[in-house]
Simulated assay, not measured.
Amino acid sequence: MHFISQELEDYIEQHSAPEPELLAALNKETYQKILLPRMLSGHFQGRVLSMLSKLIRPLNILEIGTYTGYAALCLCEGMQENGSLHTIDIKEELVDFQRKYFDRSPWGNQIVQHLGEAIDVIPTLDLKFDLVFIDADKENYLNYYELIVPKINRGGIILSDNVLWSGKVVEPLQPNDLSTKILLEYNQRLNNDPRVETVLLPIRDGLTVTRVL
């Protein structure tokens, strides 16, 4: 769903930082070979993730939902020199695809892939994070949030993707639409949780920036 016209979206991309060459290649190959390529963050959102990471300068980053690794590489652009990015996904068939691009980047040795359910993996990570990006199954957003808040340093940032869910968050809720139901609860939780402060940005399908107090 386009929240602004395609013409304006094109203008925005043309007046934002260009897509790095490696990410352009990853973008292209994802569309050529991988199912559901629209899940890719893409040029504009990728530059937003990169800019936010550069402003935050995180030491340790956690990503929930790797897909083909595009967002992970964008987040690495702002990572401290001795930092690490841990990324979790359940799709075994994408691990080698991700690793190919991770290893072509400057951060290959700093990116740790975790294969499995994020709910099981997160408690095993003995780290404090400065930046977390949630972009996985919407039904578990609330569960992920509660698991990661204690693992984030004070002042750390949680980025949550797809929080507008193609506009369904302002439409009548369908009885069997669990994803929208959970996202409505999630957005409300972030806005009311005294442990954090939140702003919801209308970027692509909605991106929430949440700061841990």
Score class of each variant (00 low, 15 high):
residue 150 P to E: 02
residue 213 L to H: 12
residue 163 V to R: 06
residue 8 L to P: 07
residue 66 T to W: 00
residue 160 S to T: 10
residue 102 F to N: 12
residue 15 H to M: 07
residue 70 Y to V: 09
residue 22 L to C: 09
residue 10 D to L: 03
residue 170 V to F: 14
residue 84 S to H: 07
residue 187 N to D: 12
residue 9 E to Y: 09
residue 180 T to Y: 04
residue 81 E to L: 03
residue 114 H to I: 02
residue 11 Y to E: 10
residue 139 E to R: 13
residue 70 Y to D: 10
residue 212 V to T: 02
residue 29 E to G: 08
residue 1 M to H: 10
residue 27 N to P: 07
residue 108 G to H: 15
residue 14 Q to I: 03
residue 103 D to G: 15
residue 187 N to A: 13
residue 124 T to Y: 14
residue 195 R to H: 14
residue 183 L to V: 11
residue 155 G to R: 07
residue 169 V to S: 09
residue 54 K to I: 02
residue 78 G to L: 00
residue 196 V to R: 13
residue 15 H to A: 12
residue 133 F to T: 09
residue 177 D to G: 03
residue 171 E to W: 12
residue 117 E to Y: 15
residue 18 P to S: 14
residue 9 E to V: 11
residue 98 Q to W: 05
residue 10 D to V: 12
residue 198 T to V: 10
residue 179 S to M: 06
residue 64 I to T: 06
residue 173 L to G: 14
residue 205 D to I: 13
residue 154 R to H: 11
residue 21 E to D: 09
residue 28 K to A: 15
residue 126 D to Y: 13
residue 190 L to G: 11
residue 57 R to H: 02
residue 55 L to Q: 01
residue 16 S to G: 11
residue 177 D to I: 07
residue 185 E to N: 09
residue 34 I to Q: 08
residue 148 I to G: 00
residue 197 E to V: 10
residue 111 I to N: 02
residue 208 T to K: 03
residue 210 T to E: 00
residue 86 H to K: 13
residue 85 L to M: 03
residue 53 S to E: 04
residue 131 L to S: 01
residue 11 Y to V: 15
residue 38 R to D: 15
residue 144 Y to F: 12
residue 20 P to L: 06
residue 83 G to E: 08
residue 203 I to K: 01
residue 127 L to Y: 04
residue 170 V to N: 06
residue 169 V to G: 05
residue 37 P to F: 08
residue 120 D to F: 08
residue 86 H to F: 10
residue 43 H to I: 15
residue 204 R to F: 09
residue 71 A to T: 04
residue 201 L to D: 02
residue 203 I to N: 04
residue 91 K to C: 13
residue 42 G to L: 02
residue 189 R to G: 03
